[in-house]
Every structure is written in C-alpha cells, then in structure tokens.
Design a protein around this nucleic acid. Structure first.
Lengths: 187, 187
DNA sequence: CCGTGATTTCAGAACTTTCTGAAATCTATG
DNA sequence: CATAGATTTCAGAAAGTTCTGAAATCACGG
C-alpha cells in the first residue's frame, strides 16, 4: 500500500471498522479509497493502492455494488470498468439505511409476524407471544416512521435534524393551538 | 434444544440473525431465550434450553452484559445468578442505539476529527480531506440529533414517531405563523 | 479456613470467513 | 471469428471466530 498518509489512515480505519459494520476488511478499504478518490478508479488501480489480490478486489466491488454503495462509471476510451461512490453523502446515508433495514430488520419482522399468527399451546407460549408482539409493535413503528422519513427531500430532512429535540416544543405548541381551537368550537 | 415450538423458532431466528447484527449465534439465542422467558434464568437453565456448553453460555452472558442487554437478577434463596432482559422494549431500543453508536460510529468520528486537523500535503490529500469533512459533517449532525432525541421521554418519542413525515407539515405551519408574526411586527 | 458448588478462564478443536492464484469466461475490436 | 485484454469464478490455503471440556478461581456456609 502506497498512498498519501491522510488517505492511508482513512482507508486503514475503514478496514478495521469493517468487521463491526458487517463487511470485511478489503471491502471497507475499497469503499474508503473510492470515497476519497478525486476520480473513478479501475480494479487494477485498487489492487495497486491496497496491495491485495486482483480477485479479492473483484469480489469486493461486487459486494459494494450489491449494497449500492459503489457505482460503475464508464471512462471514455478505456475498456476497463471504473468505479466511484455516489458523491452526495445524504444519498449514501439513504442507501445505507435502506440496505441495513433490508438485511437486519425485515427478516425479523416477517418471522415475528408469522409467529404471531400461530396459536399458543401453553401459558409459556402465550407469554412468549406477548413479548414478541411488543417487539413487533416497536419495530413496526420504527419502520413505518422510517418509510415516511426517507421520502423527504434532503433539505427538509436536514431541517428536521437541525431542529432536534426542539421538535417537541413545536408539538406542544401545536397541542395548545389545537386545544384553543377545540375550546372555541365547544363553547 | 427442547423448547415450545414458538419459542424455539424465535430463538433459532435470533441465532441466525446474530451474525448480521454483529453478535454470534449463541449470544443471539441466549438473548432471544431470556427475552421471551417469563422468569429470569440461570446459566444452567440456558445450557439445558439451548444445548450448548456451559462455558459458551458464560461467555455469551458476559458479552450481553457488556452490551447492557441482559441484567443479573438475584433470586432469593438461590446462590446461582439469574438473568433477564430489561422488559421495556423502548428501553432496549435505547440501549441498543447507544451501544451501536459507541461501537460503530464514535471511533470513526474521532478518527475523522483527527484527520481533519492535519494539513494536506498535496492536491489529492486536499480533496480527500474535503470528502472527509463532508462525511464528518453528516455524522456530526446525526449524532447531535440522536443525543437530543434520546433524552425525550418514551411517550414524547412515541408521539413523534407516530407523526412520521407529517412533522414537515407542522414545520410548514410554524414557518407560516412565524412569517405572520414577523410581518405584523415589521409593519 | 475448609469444602462444596457456582462460575470463569483458557488452550486447542471445529468451524467459518476471507483471500489468493490459476483457470475459465467474457468482450470489443481488427 | 480470432485474439488480446479485462474480468470473474473457484478450489484450496490462510486467517479469524466460536465452541468445548478441563482446570483454575471464586465465594459462601459451616
């Protein structure tokens, strides 16, 4: 590996974090490299930069494309495929959230739904099912919220984030207004 | 393993999902078992229920305690430690978010901060640093928002979730009201 | 402060994942 | 449609992890 020190640190860090994020070292490094690269890179560029085998890079790119985190980008007059990351970080966030949900949440949601359809055959099963219902309820709320929020344009989403916990004040204000209106109508 | 079928399916599913969630099979199964169990279980109960070695259970419980996902609960007149999961699912969600942030986000945030302090030594490094700044900015916003939101009581949080994307309508309404007030003051 | 039973630690076995180089496959020309 | 370069596949080697049983440690009642 022979990279500018800043880039190298970044790439190595992503490699190390990879396992915590559910991807392997090489995949993490490839992503990091593409993320900071000023231009799309081809597989051989990546081999040179990271010092891993050609086939490993091929597999890594495959996986990153499956995650929609890396896109092929054609470079005119070059037969080789080149790759980049989407450059809008918000877009990256969306992709990441979507993929993680698909892999980490959806399967559990569907298993829970299935188990909740069954009739419990004992007190123990009845209790277990009640617990599963609680879990299902929570996950369901969260995913519904997520489905709502992901449709917002970036600008609105950013505004919402910036607002943070202060949304609740807005909520309170709303309740008050609604209360007032109701009060007037009822009187 | 000899469990009521409903419980068994749930436990096996958590075992399988474990690897996607960054824990191993046994840890996933132990958690699932404790989650649906109507009373705290001791290590030997878990050994019997899951059919894994005593030491494996010991390590699993250790890890789950480190995650704050499992709590020791003393049972009177029994020397053995017993364990449960916190029973409020919202509480579980909070713990999970906190721990994942600590393990998956914070280290990256601090590496990014460090790398952003350095002076780029080339155009390539300058570009890389700009990209890192974008990433840092996004993560920073997200974590700030998270720090805000996690302080909300469960009830408010639930209300906010239920509101979903409709918050934006509230935002629009607010902007309008603020606009009105401003208009009045300025006239 | 000994003995008993609960719990943890740890070295290595079993298993899983990751990585490589060689061979196979694909693809765009001339 | 042959060829040269690019890319992918794949079997097995290397590395990493999870799991076990045996031994060590701990902790409490007598």
């Amino acid at each position: 590996m022979n990279l500018p020190p800043l880039v190298q640190s970044f790439v190595l860090h992503f490699g190390e974090m990879g396992s915590r994020w559910g991807i392997n070292r090489t995949v993490g490094q490839i992503y990091a490299l593409l993320y900071v690269s000023p231009r799309p890179l081809c597989a051989d560029d990546i081999v040179d930069a990271l010092g891993v085998s050609r086939s490993n890079v091929s597999m890594g790119l495959r996986e990153l494309q499956a995650w929609n985190l890396v896109l092929p980008k054609h470079i005119p007059d070059d037969r080789r495929d080149h790759f980049t990351t989407p450059d809008d970080v918000w877009q990256i966030l969306r992709v990441l959230a979507e993929e993680r949900k698909k892999r980490e949440v959806d399967p559990t949601l569907s298993v829970l739904r299935e188990l909740l359809m069954q009739t419990p055959g004992s007190e123990e099963e009845r209790h277990a099912q009640a617990r599963m219902a609680e879990m299902h309820g929570l996950i369901d709320r969260l995913t519904t919220w997520y489905e709502d929020v992901k449709r917002l344009e970036t600008e609105r989403l950013a505004a919402l984030l910036a607002l943070g916990a202060r949304v609740t004040r807005l909520l309170e204000a709303k309740d008050k207004v609604v209360g007032l209106v109701r009060g007037r109508k009822e009187s």
